[in-house]
Design a protein around this nucleic acid. Structure first.
Length: 444
RNA sequence: GGUCCCGUAGCCAAGUGGCUAAGGCAAUGGACUGCAACUCCGUGACCGCCGGUUCGAAUCCGGCCGGGACCUCCA
């Protein structure tokens, strides 16, 4: 299985640190608002990464944090006259709801910054002890100049960065590239520390948590490409300062989601929240996985609509197959693999093995849709249909898609039989009434 | 200004040196059908432009045009 490692910019064969286990960490949201569809992209993609590793038999230790202390959280708390904790709780709850709506599992470890304050503080202390960080009036900054290959992840050179850096007149930093580890402040929530009252900068939480939870280097560190620099670069710098590692063997970054070919912008009204997607969550998930994760993806209502239709088609054939067996009480029939199904399965897994090429995997899902529709039109295909359903189940489990189909009740079956009889007897008025009933029940 | 990415049919999108360039949506012709819906079969591409490398390029190199990201809080 190959993964594109953004640390080396190469496709690399995946070799876990511990056999049969994948330790992965994905940078999570800052919880000061409802998540938008751009936030949902890594939530969906890395969920699929985990699902695929699990499909391959790995135990996956998946961790994704909540940044619950930060300027934006504090500002929001002041605006809404709530405590930071209340703001965080509100939006963490909303996050879980939205994540589940788009089909992502929320059963993973989700540490909060506020729960790891002592780890973060001691991490900073150790950086100071090793002289990789310095204190100025209660602030603590990281000394970027001490890291030889700073810029290794984002492919930047320190000289280039200096040219682009803004000149901060009141800077207390030795070097404009140095970043804040601890910020002295009296606005909003603060914690006592050896450096004074204040709160941590953004860049230390992830490394401190990874250190605490995993006790060292992990297999995969993921996140959006826009936080490659400076956030992930700074994580690497800190870890390198403390123990000389890159924290993770494989770095994975997903591309951005744009709206109308432009970056999302709250101020320009170009933003779509997950909670406002109405009921098109599975269509959105399909859309989100239809472009390779490293490429940018463009959202418009029309584009989403075409995937909503595609998903309708997919769940419809699944539903029809399932019900056609259920109506004959044949759901437990022995499945019989066909060469076509085998070919579809192999190509699907090949695509996933090749750096999680979900776009090509979805093509195989679509091929499965077409093939299943073909056998559905033929008679005496129960065994192949059962195999097709099983393959759908596998694909759905890996991609996190849920067709929401369950067994028919005795009443459902009775109405269906009555409808079939009425049609056979050409009692069309009666048939139409029954058809309507079946449609209401979501069976047709 | 610095660093980097992308440009494939009306729309979305795979493919990154070699059979007739996947797949979906839309459109359109046909089949099926009590009417619908669904479904099936068929129909669509001078791969942004110009030049180069090569026996051979959508794929590699150079230039141009167009779009975008990061460098600054932002997933």
């Amino acid at each position: 299985m190959r993964i594109f490692n953004t640390l080396t910019n190469k496709l690399e064969e995946f070799v876990p640190i511990h056999e049969d286990t994948v330790n992965m960490y994905v940078c999570g949201p800052t919880v000061y608002n409802y998540i938008h569809i751009g936030n949902a992209r890594p939530v969906i993609f890395f969920d699929v990464v985990r699902r695929y590793f699990e499909h391959k038999g790995y135990t996956v230790n998946f961790v994704s944090n909540f940044t619950d202390v930060d300027d934006k959280v504090i500002t929001k708390a002041l605006e809404d006259e709530m405590s930071e904790l209340e703001v965080a709780n509100k939006f963490i709850e909303a996050f879980y709801r939205d994540a589940q709506r788009v089909g992502s599992s929320t059963k993973y470890l989700a540490p909060r910054v506020t729960e790891y304050m002592s780890s973060i503080i001691s991490y900073i202390e150790r950086l100071v002890e090793k002289d990789y960080a310095y204190q100025v009036d209660g602030d603590v900054y990281f000394r970027v100049g001490k890291i030889d290959d700073y810029g290794i992840l984002s492919g930047r050179k320190v000289e280039d960065l200096k040219e682009g850096a803004r000149i901060d007149v009141n800077s207390r930093k030795e070097n404009p590239l140095d970043f804040t580890l601890w910020k002295s402040t009296d606005v909003g929530i603060t914690w006592p520390s050896p450096f004074g009252e204040g709160r941590p900068g953004w860049h230390t939480e992830c490394v401190a948590m990874i250190n605490d939870i995993f006790g060292g280097k992990i297999d995969i560190h993921g996140g959006g490409s826009e936080i490659k620099f400076p956030h992930h670069e700074n994580e690497i710098a800190q870890a390198k300062a403390l123990d000389g590692t890159n924290i993770a063997n494989y770095w994975m970054h997903n591309g951005q989601l744009n709206i109308d070919d432009k970056k999302m912008s709250k101020s320009e009204g170009r933003i779509v929240l997950v909670k406002d997607l109405d009921h098109d969550y599975m269509g959105f998930r399909l859309f989100s996985l239809s472009t390779h994760y490293r490429s940018p993806i463009n959202y418009t209502d029309d584009i989403l609509d075409s995937y909503v239709k595609d998903w309708d088609r997919t769940r419809r054939v699944y539903k029809q197959s399932y019900y056609s067996l259920d109506l004959k009480d044949a759901l437990e029939v022995k499945s019989e693999q066909t060469p076509e199904l085998k070919g579809i399965e192999l190509k699907f897994m090949d695509a996933m093995d090749n750096d999680f090429n979900t776009a090509n995997a979805i093509t195989e899902l679509q091929n499965l849709v077409k093939y299943t529709n073909q056998i559905l039109r033929k008679s005496d295909t129960e065994h192949a249909l059962k195999a097709a359903i099983e393959l759908f189940d596998t694909f759905f489990r890996i991609l996190g898609l849920d067709p929401g189909v369950t067994k028919l009740s005795a009443t459902d079956k009775a109405i269906y039989m009555e409808w079939a009889d009425a049609r056979r007897n050409k009692e069309f008025d009666k048939a139409d009434r029954l058809r309507e009933k079946l449609q209401e029940r979501g069976i047709l």
